[in-house]
Amino acid sequence: MNLAFDIVLGLALLLTALGVFSSKDLFRAVVMFIAFGLLLALVWVRLDAPDLALAEAAIGAGLTGVLMIDAVAHLSANTLQNDQRDDQYDHSPKRPLWLPVISCVGLFVLLLGAIRFRPEASVSLPDMVRDNIAESGVEHPITAVLLNFRSYDTLLEIAVLLVAVVVAMALKPAAEDRVHQPPPAHDPILHGLTARLLPAMLLVGMYVLWAGSYMPGGAFQGGAILAAALVFLQLAGFAVDRYAASLLRLGLALGFLVFLTVAVSVMIGGRPFLTYPEGFAGQLIFFIEAMLTLSIGLILFSLFSQNPPHSGAVGHQGANHDQ
């Protein structure tokens, strides 16, 4: 039964991927991609990787969808202004088909070969992790690897996210260039839901962070939920970005700085870079993770909020109560 499940799941994943690529309607491709994200989360579940499933559920089903919908809204607003030239793009002359086909087949053969002739691993990494997990300060192997055994990976990931958001902020038009647009219509039902759902989101985000020490969860997943909560808040018409702008910059640097400070300050005690003193590892990891969660949440949120708002938003109905 589970084999049938896996086969159908894999086929469905391919089907949605095909749908994303073959759809000429951008919005359809975006919704297909949301479906793809959900199926991918299920695939991670079936591959025994609930950590990734959690991250994919938070990022794929929540944030990526929002970012893409926003992008499509921007794009369609622009193409309308440009007199619908997109017809030319859609029916562009046929590109040669053999190039992608050959490269795909080649890649497939290479992958097969890589699987067939893979070398014997000289050390068994899972065994090493299992043997050393007692020293890592946490009980969940994934968190132990990410924040203790190979913590420079996580450090660099944060750096990458930071760079991404700096680029996003650089692309943002200056404040005076932006078209002043009326705030979106006030929707009491959405407003009410947000006011009640947000504390729950906060709790769940922090729970996922806490859970990272013992079971699937962690800073990245918690941060994604935090970011989603902030996005929700902004979409529902609460004025988040207005007074949060300065806090945002602080939060953006926070995770990185704390990580770096802890990593360097242990060197003062004569230890190598990024090793934790015995006995404190658990607490230190949790502290770093908490800061990372905040930082990741703010970074992901600002990827959304730094978008210039466009004038095509649905906003011609009702009075604006919360302004």
């Binding site: 929707d187 039902i189 839901l193 009640r196 759902l197 729950a200 649905v314 109905q317």
Partner: peptide
Amino acid sequence: VLVLAASATASYLIAHYIKQ
């Protein structure tokens, strides 16, 4: 309960959008 709250709101939002 979370799914209920979410989909009750979502159903109103999308219905309102279609009507608008």
